[in-house]
Amino acid sequence: MDPVTETIVPELVPQIFLNFYPIAIVVAIIVAVIGFSALILEKNDFQKILVIQIPILAMYFIVSAVGTDLAEALILPGIVVALAELLAVTEILIFREITKKEQKKEALEEFDFDFKPINMEVLKTAIPITCLVSVIYGAILTGFTGGAVAGAGILIYLFTGKISGIPHSFWEEMTGISGVAWCIWIIGFLLLFITPQLWLLSLFMAGAGIIVKVALKLGLLGILGREEYNV
């Protein structure tokens, strides 16, 4: 193979990744063991969720240690999925605590917690720009990365409490948009498999669909948060 092609796509995995591999696995195993031992010692349920993040990081490490493009394609969505699972489990924990409280029928005194936005100069000026930049950059990067970046932008905007009280119907519309994005994405996929000649169109459909979907889903979280506090 000529040297120019060798720098584009080599035949074998480069030597440096082969050298990385044993270290990577051993470190990952050590990290996972640390995480698990912390989990075993931990008593608080919420803290368990936090501690589990360590083995998940070790998982990323093990997968990435393969050192090919395939490995990156494998971790990329996995990162987002781990987050989604975390979200579901956290919600179940909160719901459990609420049910527990109801079953105890203890009259917990309602203390006044003022949910007003914080007055900080940096928040007033920086937040909108930050969100705008991240959403635009997320739009440039398609796929899971773009969705995550744009979602983070939307989410921080909603979390910092600039807007208050998005009506209930709005979020239902958002779900509709998310569903449409899902459909676009699936259609793009099928198109890609059936007619590879239309790859550009289908690729754009798939890329745009998934970014809209992921970003909206993440944005919904923030809206739901507002809903919940009834601000």
Partner: peptide
């Protein structure tokens, strides 16, 4: 959540 380590780790 823990399972993602053995499953994906094993595959990797």
């Amino acid at each position: 959540m823990i399972c993602s380590l053995p499953l994906f780790g094993g595959v990797a």
